[in-house]
Nucleic acid binder design. Structure first.
Lengths: 193, 193
DNA sequence: CTCTAATTAACGAACGTTCGTAAGTTATTA
DNA sequence: TAATAACTTACGAACGTTCGTTAATTAGAG
């Protein structure tokens, strides 16, 4: 399907150059078309962008949902560290997460409101999933604390820091070192000792 | 000085719209000039951009240097939490940090190499400052651990997560809650108990 | 008079978008 | 089955606009 090829190319250029820096002619050339032909598949640049955005959001959310629905709930250490690994894998094996990150951090100004809604939506859902897990672990005395919100936000902070390092993206060794340090301190901070 | 006014306006538009999305005509209009007049002060768009970039870098670095050279070295808890507050203040009171963050995360493609060098440079320097402090605190048994690199990277992760929340920027309450959680867990993770 | 800063004018190039058209494919009708 | 209608996909050409940049010219200050 040509629409999918177009979205793939668009994803690539939006990720590298941002909304304003990505041109329809470049995207079209990538799939062997003229830019006018894109209009046979999409209403315009905004429509193309928003479809790519929603695909990326869907992919991000479903990965998280699937991971935590299939992970071993009796082992928080493994479950949480495994999620960080998943994020790293996702980021490195396809562009959708990087695209999603770029656009949630720095959305094109005229689509800010739409994007913010999508970002809030996915954040809320992922936070809810994590908070549920942490509440289970607290109840089972597998980690310390009473309110699940504290370890949830703390873990989301670790996720954010991993994402930042991935976005910088130039130094695999540094990523490993920083993840190791953040994880060590985080785990000591929420576990019994 | 008109050059400074131009750089101020450029900072604003580069921050909001990115390099490609910011136009010289908008920047010029902001300071009551025609876009061609910018060329009396700068060689072109790249020159203007790079001067704004280096100003922002200088400001970021000097803030960190100054803070840690004047802070109470006997109280790591206060020193570190104070730095997080400083970052939040800096981010909210002028645009330079947000600009710097945007460009270090997602640089314009044709200036990627130059920017990466600046980013690596400032990161290295700030890491060195922190690592020195942490080594002192470890030696004084104010925090746990042997190698200073672990708490240093862990703290930098907390900083990153704060920056991420600032970039999202839509929810002051959420920033406070997330900072509180990340800080609680981080401090528990590096302190004696 | 000189120098700098700002202007007007103009440049080629690229942008997103629209139009009319020509194929190729699918669906409908006779 | 054959003919026709409708729809999809792609293209050339052109639209008006904006982009960054250069050149020549004017206004103002020391």
């Amino acid at each position: 399907m040509k629409s999918i090829e177009i979205k793939d190319a668009a994803l690539k250029y939006f990720t590298i150059h941002g909304y304003e820096g990505a041109s329809l002619s470049q995207i079209a050339k990538d799939v062997g078309l003229k830019k006018q032909s894109i209009y046979a598949h999409f209403k315009g640049k905004d429509d193309l962008f928003l479809q790519v955005l929603r695909d990326a959001k869907e992919m991000d959310l479903s990965s998280t949902v699937q991971y935590f629905s299939s992970v071993d709930s009796k082992n928080p250490e493994k479950a949480l560290y495994g999620y960080l690994q998943l994020v790293i894998d996702l980021f490195q094996k396809d562009e959708q997460l990087k695209f999603w990150l770029r656009m949630s951090f720095f959305p094109p100004a005229h689509l800010e409101k739409v994007i913010e809604r999508e970002v809030t939506d996915i954040e809320e859902k992922e936070r809810a999933i994590l908070e549920g897990k942490f509440q289970e672990w607290i109840n089972a005395k597998l980690i310390i604390g009473d309110a699940a919100i504290t370890p949830t936000f703390a873990f989301l902070s670790v996720v954010d820091s991993v994402l930042v390092e991935l976005v910088y993206g130039n130094d695999e060794e540094k990523l490993k070192a920083k993840l190791a340090a953040a994880w060590t301190v985080f785990w000591r901070g929420i576990s019994h000792q």
